[in-house]
Computed example of a mutant assay.
Amino acid sequence: MNITVNAKHITLTDAIRDYSEKKIQRIAKYFDDKMDIHVNLNVEKNMHIAEIFVNVKGMFLKGIEKSEDMYASIDMAVDKIERQVVKYKEKLISRKNIENRESMEDLKLSVYDYNEEHAIEEPTVVISKQIPAKPMDIEEAIMQMDLMNKNFFVFRNAENSEINVVYKRDDGKVGIIEP
């Protein structure tokens, strides 16, 4: 396991580094393989932000939390990632027809014994829409997303005829997903 702890606008003390690494051990118990974990600690206007990024064999997990206490932010971010791991593992186990068993074996998720109260319901599709994917440039797609007051917009990129997605990021900027 490779853990990198970085700090911005805060002094990275041994106590904070040790606390981060100790809490991250909760995530490491789910995996047998090598994993890269990046912890970014930041302070902005009295808010302590903990960002934890985990990379295990191509599976990426992200937990970002803010609070008035750095230790609490670290705890909440680790909890968020732990919930993601449990949810992902339960999805893999609950599927009856797993097409790619090799990828599941590559992850080598360790056994996690949980109570029924932690069981996660499968999401159900509530609505299905079909939209014409008219060719447009990125700027027009962003404008359409803003006009419809949505957080994302699917469109066919006029430059390469591929289906793309523009979306609003948490920081207020716009991102694009391209195949």
Rank of each mutant, 00 (worst) to 15 (best):
L107C: 11
E65N: 05
A7R: 01
M104W: 10
Y167A: 12
L41A: 08
A7Q: 03
E105R: 14
E21C: 07
E99G: 15
N160M: 03
A15S: 11
Y114Q: 06
V174Q: 12
V154N: 06
E178S: 08
V39C: 15
N55A: 07
K89C: 02
D36A: 10
M104A: 15
E90N: 14
Y112L: 15
Y88G: 04
I24M: 15
E117Y: 09
R169K: 14
R156L: 13
E21V: 00
F153M: 04
M47E: 10
N6F: 06
R169W: 03
K66F: 03
Y114R: 12
Q144I: 03
A119F: 15
G175R: 03
N55S: 11
A119T: 14
N46C: 02
S110D: 00
P135H: 09
I3L: 08
E99D: 13
F31W: 04
N55C: 01
N157C: 14
R26K: 15
V39H: 11
S128K: 12
S73Q: 00
L61W: 04
E21T: 02
K96L: 12
I93W: 08
N157T: 04
I127P: 02
D113A: 00
Q25N: 07
I24S: 00
L12H: 06
M136F: 08
D33Q: 08
I127C: 09
K129Y: 09
D146S: 12
M1C: 00
L147R: 10
L147W: 03
E65C: 11
M76T: 02
V111A: 14
V43D: 10
Y19L: 02
I81A: 10
K168T: 09
I81G: 09
V56D: 01
L107Y: 13
K45P: 04
K168F: 03
V5D: 02
G58Y: 07
N164T: 03
Y167T: 10
F53G: 08
E122C: 06
I49Q: 01
D106L: 11
L12D: 05
I64C: 11
M70R: 02
M76H: 09
I98F: 15
D113H: 02
